[in-house]
């Protein structure tokens, strides 16, 4: 995992710890009369690993969409690394070090694995509009190869994304999120649909990420979520229901009743 230890502009910030990586204040998003999330406040320190739990419809993915700018909150503010990005388009937030993966893989069926990862590296670099092909020895091509290796996709690097297996597509999702110099990654159910062996591999990838990279993870698999997270936020009906350390949350009878009840319902 040494390839992921790229020098991050935030490493100094992380040690100071003065500025939150992510700060939500009273974020609400209405769909018609329904509040998908209501008055959510949340602070994630630089390098912190946070799990967001909650039953289906608790507003977890809407929360992610508000953070990335895929949808705009009806009210409330979103701050990234101290900067108010509430009205910023997604690409501006990405250029500030935010990344995300999607619950249902959102990839490029017509491109190869190598091209996809290369584009992800390019997206946050300058010259993303370049009309010139990369020269041999372009550092981004090296970086692309390293990332593909890091998610164990090297044998499939020249295959079209549409030809990949489900598990490989999930791995590619993670490679795309790790490209560039991420400081905060949002993982939306990365373990969904993976085999037990693939889950163990995922946990290993997540726990060995460089310390300066923080992440927020939505995960239905409590085993995965509580193993990789240092803190937990529990959402219920679009509101923050509980916050605490993983073992506190796990042992909380109220949470247990709600979460298990909701998951089966």
């Amino acid at each position: 995992m040494s390839v992921l230890d790229s020098p991050a502009p935030s490493s100094r910030l992380a040690s100071v710890g003065a500025t939150a990586a992510l700060e939500l204040r009273g974020v609400t998003r209405m769909f018609g009369a329904l509040a998908a999330i209501a008055d959510v406040s949340l602070t994630v320190r630089p390098g912190e690993r946070r799990a967001v739990l909650g039953s289906n419809g608790a507003g977890k993915t809407t929360l992610f969409n508000c953070i990335t700018g895929d949808i705009l909150p009806t009210s409330g503010t979103v701050r990234l690394f101290g900067e108010d990005v509430t009205r910023f388009p997604p690409y501006e937030r990405i250029r500030r070090g935010l990344r995300r993966t999607y619950q249902i893989s959102l990839l490029f069926p017509g491109l190869s694995v190598a091209d996809s990862v290369y584009l992800a590296c390019r997206g946050v670099s300058r010259w993303r509009y370049s009309l010139l092909r990369p020269r041999t020895g372009d550092p981004l091509l090296m970086r692309t190869a390293e990332l593909i290796e890091a998610v164990h996709l090297t044998p499939a690097r020249d295959r079209l994304v549409s030809e990949l297996s489900y598990g490989q597509q999930r791995q590619l999702e993670i490679a795309l999120a790790l490209a560039g110099a991420p400081r905060l990654i949002l993982f939306d159910e990365p373990a969904a649909g993976l085999s037990p062996a693939e889950r163990r591999e995922l946990v290993e990838i997540l726990t060995t990420l460089p310390r300066h990279i923080g992440f927020v993870i939505i995960e239905h698999d409590m085993d995965v979520a509580l193993r990789v997270a240092e803190s937990v936020t529990m959402l219920h009906n679009g509101r923050v229901f509980k916050e605490g350390a993983p073992d506190e949350i796990e042992d909380d009878p109220e949470v247990q009743a709600l979460y298990l009840g909701g998951a089966h319902g």
Binding site: L106, R122, Y129
Partner: peptide
């Protein structure tokens, strides 16, 4: 030539999935 340069590749990425390209830092 341009189809294989970053500009053309990114355009094909946008064709396949504009939302994901925005999530990679591209101004679609």
């Amino acid at each position: 030539y341009v189809a294989r340069a970053p500009f053309g590749l990114a355009l094909q990425g946008i064709r396949d999935n504009a939302r994901r390209m925005a999530a990679l830092g591209y101004n679609v």
